Amino acid sequence: MNTRRLCFSCDLRDNPKLIEEYKQYHAKGNAWPEITKSIKDGGIIDLQIYLTGNRMFMIMDVDETFDPIKKAKEDAHNPKVQEWEELMWNYQQALPWAKEGEKWVPMEQVFQLE
Rank of each mutant, 00 (worst) to 15 (best):
Q82V: 01
G43L: 12
D61A: 03
H26L: 06
R55A: 01
N54Q: 04
T52K: 05
Y50G: 09
I49R: 03
I69D: 12
P68K: 07
N30G: 10
K71T: 09
P79A: 06
A31F: 00
V81T: 10
M60N: 06
K37I: 15
E83L: 11
I45M: 10
P68G: 06
N30H: 15
K71S: 05
D75R: 10
Q48G: 06
P33S: 11
Y91E: 05
K73T: 13
E64K: 14
L47F: 08
L95C: 02
K70R: 12
D41Q: 14
I49N: 01
N90E: 12
A27N: 11
I45D: 09
Q48M: 13
A72L: 13
K40V: 11
Q82R: 10
Q92L: 13
M60A: 10
P68D: 10
P33M: 08
D67W: 07
G42D: 13
K80M: 12
Y91F: 14
S38H: 04
E64A: 08
G53V: 00
E74K: 12
E83Y: 10
E85D: 09
L47Y: 07
I45C: 11
D63E: 07
G42Y: 02
G42C: 12
E34T: 14
G43R: 08
L87C: 05
P68H: 08
A31V: 05
D75P: 00
F57D: 01
M60T: 04
W97N: 10
T65S: 03
T52Y: 00
M56L: 14
T52S: 09
K71H: 03
W89F: 03
G29S: 03
D46Y: 15
E100T: 13
I44P: 09
G53W: 01
H77D: 06
Q82S: 06
K28Y: 09
M60L: 10
D41W: 02
A98C: 15
A94D: 03
A72S: 15
Q93C: 04
P68C: 08
K37Y: 15
N90A: 06
K70M: 08
Q92T: 06
P79F: 02
A76D: 08
Q92M: 10
K71W: 01
W32Q: 08
W89A: 04
G29H: 04
D61G: 00
L87S: 05
G29A: 03
K40F: 06
E74I: 08
K73Y: 11
V81D: 02
K37W: 14
I44M: 15
W32C: 01
M56E: 07
E100L: 05
D61N: 05
A94G: 04
I35D: 07
N54E: 05
K99H: 11
P96M: 09
P33I: 10
H26F: 09
E85I: 07
K73D: 13
T52P: 01
R55F: 02
T65N: 07
